[in-house]
Design a protein around this nucleic acid. Structure first.
Length: 828
RNA sequence: GCCGGGAUGGUGGAAUGGGUAGACACACGGGACUUAAAAUCCCGCGGGCCUCGGCCUGUGCCGGUUCAAGUCCGGCUCCCGGCACCA
């Protein structure tokens, strides 16, 4: 009688074994080369979903594979534990965010253990622990000292209902996502990280990230958005001062017939002072300022503006040109003022036509001349400069560099570079986040909390009502404090940090999670960093991955790390799709990992998610596909159990060349499979084709004749094939593989077994199948000895009966050979 | 609008430096075992024609390069993702 595949017992037993033996615990005292594999840590939302199963299955294959290849593999797991959902749960269910978070972590940790992922649990961390965020407060103070953290007034989304700041993602159609009240823009003092100081470095660093997908690098480059151009100062008419504008098209400056300002521009109101339109200008500016950024940023919004009543001088043409406010000019980019060139910018063109401003073409396409009256849209391409003084006749490109030089010569401006990247706003008017460690004193102003008084802990006795803004701002026990400098009364900062700050350095903390005297232990981070392979969803292509790159540079400059780039290689996995849509509660298409584990086991769940698609593509969920994966594991199990006794009688041997043809084929396939699986994992993480290859090996093994199995050499080869198959399966389905390995009589842990080697010689076939084409079309197949030379193959091809029939006496013009594969006979 | 990525059987997907298109699996059809069902095993499975040995055709569409194109080049169509009034 053969025993059944009782996955529930097997999986529980091996998970217990790995835990008991601390099988995946690592330290720095190892002679093996290090390998740091990391998957993006989860937010403890309650339970794991299929996206997690996929992400962590992919990571676990790589971790287990690298271990078998002889690496000292760091594979940690933790929790991105601060964030809004905990607070919302507190409001809705009257559960404290800390308790909600801890309970979720406990449940999800158990789920991850049930999946059999090979984490070093000794390094587990949760970002909401003071033992984690205290170090973030240390970093903050250091950044403050270096001018990398600063506070300034900034326009924010303000929900009139909840009386709180909202992230851009929380504004839906200009309304609050939760209470649906109107969202307005409001100026509030906010904390920022000066990521823009690293814009050029972050951009240049992209060129060296050869292990990242091009798609992600492109997105990062676009996000940083470098523009090379010039700053030009337009002197104000009838008063002191000037207006600085930024342009990338200084070659069009002779066509600048007005200047447009953002509503937030410091001179916006001043310039209309004392003019009849002052009231109208004020009203316009206020109206525009209140519109949320998402709505103002809409291309469809009609271009609108108002004349300020003032003029400035275009220093190139000597003309006085009007100054307008315009709703499409952004204060955050450039200088908040643009020189308007209607003939060569589509927005300025529309604006000029609407308000009757002059359109003056100063760039002509090669071999043509533009006339303002005939233009129906702006000519935005490069061309030849005209009506541009001494610069006329130059190409746009040449003109740009000449004018930039000319600006500096005359001190009218200079060539300059601008980035779209903005400083990172990290203030959140929220409870469940890391407190920003500063206090405000009436006498001393803003004072950092001294390092030895850290951490500034989150208070626990908090009411969550969902109204009246941040709970911390309503808690005198928290914000009433004394000034560290003068010991007078002071008010504590009640903003907390964006949760993206925690996830910007957790990977470094995994190197030394128990370090309690300093944030990072340079010795240990130097050993483990950078992360050799990072795995996660592509949705983090910009935010998290850019913040982490920035923060790593900051930590390097502060001396905490030696590397500039945190992640050497990046694998972005696709989404899990069912019935044509991403799995989500609202779509009612969620498959719960718990159900899957209960019905089929973790190995089946892992196998299916790895087999159904290559990692970077979206994965189409299929219940029947899961069944299929489960059936395969059953087949492997039954085969091993059925032949266990026979195989125990022989020693595994795949070196010897067996007698029968079928066995020779099995031996060749065995070695080929090792090569195929190794290459698929090593070179491109294509686990689906690796698993397919193992299935093919199993199919060949399974169709072995009873006669071959009775033979000594047959049984020895079968044993080698089965054991190799189990070892190759180990990274994918570790429980069943471990169980079978043990049942086949091995005492050594499968995780410690080395990855199998293949023999190049064993791949060579005795005879090869050569495809014969006539004029590029498949006409026959011939079998030739492996060592046959080209001449012999050609002769054999021409002699093939079917091929001869197609040639049918016609002249052979040419014969093309692909060595060992194909012959193409070209006839007239 | 700009920047990426993609389109291959009924389905998910293979084909890695142009060289047998459809590996592996799912679904489906037929058969074996069974009193029956499930499970398992075997056979078939792009389309069309067929004298059953084959023949023609086929990788979104149109054209090109090549002895040879899913793969390279030019021009389209549609789908997905990101950014989006960035001066």
């Amino acid at each position: 009688m053969t025993e059944k595949y009782e996955f529930w017992n097997i999986e529980e037993r091996w998970q217990g074994e790995w835990e008991r033996l601390e099988s995946f615990r690592v330290d720095e005292a190892s002679d093996l080369p290090k390998y740091y594999l990391l998957e993006m840590f989860p937010y403890p939302s309650g339970r794991i979903h299929m996206g997690h199963v996929r992400n962590y299955s992919i990571g676990d294959v790589i971790a287990r594979y690298k271990r078998m290849r002889g690496f000292n593999v760091l594979h940690p797991m933790g929790w991105d534990a601060f964030g809004l959902p905990a607070e919302n749960a507190a409001i809705a269910n009257k559960v404290h965010p800390a308790r909600w978070t801890v309970e979720n972590i406990d449940y999800m940790r158990a789920q991850l253990k049930q999946m059999g992922f090979s984490y070093d649990w000794a390094r587990e961390l949760a970002t909401s622990d003071a033992s984690y965020y205290r170090w973030e407060q240390v970093f903050f103070l250091e950044m403050l000292k270096r001018g990398l953290a600063y506070k300034r007034n900034s326009a924010v989304n303000w929900c009139t209902g909840c009386e709180t700041v909202l992230a851009n993602e929380q504004v839906v159609d200009g309304r609050c996502w939760r209470c649906e009240q109107e969202v307005l823009m409001r100026e509030l003092p906010q904390w920022f990280f000066r990521i823009t100081a690293y814009a050029e470095d972050l951009l240049a660093g992209c060129d060296d990230l050869h292990g990242w997908p091009d798609k992600v690098l492109t997105m990062q480059r676009n996000w940083i958005g470098k523009s090379i151009g010039a700053e030009i100062r337009f002197p104000l008419v009838g008063r002191e001062g000037d207006l600085a504008v930024f342009t990338t098209r200084q070659d069009t400056v002779y066509g600048a017939t007005f200047v447009s300002l953002a509503a937030e521009h410091p001179l916006a109101l001043e310039l209309s002072e004392g003019t009849p339109q002052h009231g109208a200008v004020r009203e316009f500016a206020q109206r525009v300022k209140r519109i949320s950024h998402s709505r103002r940023g809409d291309v469809e919004t009609e271009k609108e503006g108002i004349f300020t009543g003032s003029f400035c001088l275009n220093p190139f043409t000597g003309e006085n040109i009007p100054i307008y406010l315009a709703n499409f000019v952004l204060m955050e980019y450039g200088t908040g003022a643009v020189m308007a060139v209607p003939a060569h910018d589509q927005r300025d063109f529309e604006f000029a036509r609407k308000y009757g401003l002059p359109v003056r073409p100063v760039i002509h396409p090669r071999g043509a001349t533009l006339a303002a009256e005939d233009m129906t849209e702006a000519y935005v391409a490069d061309g030849v400069m005209a009506d541009s003084g001494d610069f006329s006749g130059l190409s746009s490109e040449e003109g740009r560099s000449r004018i930039a030089a000319f600006l500096e010569e005359r001190d009218w401006g200079k060539g300059t570079v601008r980035y779209r990247l903005r400083d990172w706003g990290i203030s959140r008017q929220r409870y469940w986040g890391a407190p920003i460690p500063v206090v405000y004193c009436d006498r001393c102003g803003m004072v950092p909390v001294p390092v030895d008084e850290l951490p500034v802990r989150l208070p626990t006795n908090v009411e969550f009502t969902g109204a009246g803004g941040s709970p911390l701002a309503n808690l005198p026990e928290f914000y009433e404090t004394e000034c560290p400098t003068c010991r007078g009364p002071a008010r504590r900062e009640t903003d907390t940090m964006d949760t993206f700050v925690e996830s910007s350095w957790y990977f470094a903390r995994y190197a030394c999670p128990d370090e309690d005297r300093q944030p990072l232990d340079r010795k240990r981070t130097d050993y483990w960093m950078a992360v050799d392979q990072y795995v996660g969803g592509v949705e983090h292509a910009v935010l998290h991955l850019l913040y982490a790159r920035f923060y790593t540079r900051v930590l390097r400059d502060m001396g905490w790390l030696s590397v500039a780039e945190p992640f050497t290689n990046l694998l972005t996995q696709g989404m899990v799709i069912k019935d044509g849509a991403k799995m989500s509660k609202s779509k009612m298409n969620v498959v719960d990992p718990d159900d899957l584990i209960r019905r089929y086991g973790a190995d089946t769940a892992r196998l299916f998610t790895l087999f159904a698609a290559p990692p970077e593509k979206d994965l189409d969920w299929s219940d029947q596909g899961v069944e299929g994966a489960h059936r395969f594991l059953n087949r492997v199990w039954r085969f091993a159990m059925r032949h266990r006794e026979r195989l125990a009688e022989v020693a595994a041997d795949s070196g010897r060349i067996p007698s029968s043809g079928a066995l020779k084929e099995l031996r060749r396939r065995l070695h080929w499979t090792i090569k195929k699986v190794t290459d698929d994992i090593e070179q491109r993480f294509h686990f689906n084709t690796a698993i397919a290859a193992i299935m093919e090996l199993h199919n060949t093994l399974g169709s072995m004749s009873p006669e071959d199995l009775r033979q000594e050499d047959g049984a020895a080869l079968a044993k080698a094939a089965l054991e190799t198959e189990i070892v190759l399966l180990a990274p994918f389905v570790p429980h069943i593989a471990s169980e079978l390995w043990q049942r086949l009589g091995h005492t050594e842990a499968l995780a410690d077994v080395g990855w199998p080697e293949y023999s190049e010689a064993a791949l060579v076939e005795e005879s090869r199948l050569i495809v014969v084409q006539v004029n590029g079309k498949l006409r026959g197949k011939i079998s030739v000895p492996a060592d046959a030379d080209a001449e012999r193959i050609e002769t054999a091809a021409l002699a093939d009966a079917r091929v001869a029939a197609f040639i049918d006496g016609r002249d052979v013009r040419r014969v093309v050979q692909v060595p060992g594969r194909l012959v193409n006979i070209v006839i007239e």
